[in-house]
Design a binder for these strands. Structure first.
Length: 107
DNA sequence: GAATTGACGTTCT
DNA sequence: AAGAACGCCAATT
């Protein structure tokens, strides 16, 4: 049922990220009330393979595609972001704050 | 069963 | 101000 585990919450929020928007692990973690558990958010994304979660819209607080290596080992993640209108430079999102989507503020 | 690692971020020194 | 250490919980080895 609604076993709201930390993981499931992360999946729920990540899946609610609108098109052309991005968020950070800490933002989601903080929204869930566990700002210091940002690692769990990333760990959840690792398991995102079990869920259809747009993990490519989730980056670290700096806007760097830290987990691009988990997308297949290529620039797939960057391509996906650019496909949504987000500019990426050297694995780093341009105007990250501009495309930033805060779950606690928007949701 | 125990120890180490892991898509990060905060806090202390 | 900059750098280093810690914390969080789960999964893997």
């Amino acid at each position: 049922m609604e076993d709201e585990n930390f993981f499931d919450k992360v999946y729920a929020v990540a899946r609610e990220i609108p098109y052309g928007k991005v968020t950070s692990y800490g933002a989601i973690a903080k929204y869930l009330g566990a700002a210091r558990s940002a690692r769990m958010v990333g760990w959840a994304m690792n398991n995102s393979s079990a869920k259809e979660v747009p993990a490519h819209r989730v980056v670290n607080r700096v806007g760097v595609l830290t987990g691009k290596h988990h997308f297949g080992g290529t620039n797939l993640m960057q391509q996906l972001l650019e496909n949504e209108g987000i500019k990426v430079k050297d694995n780093q999102i341009v105007d990250f704050q501009k495309h930033f989507w805060d779950p606690g503020k928007e949701l």
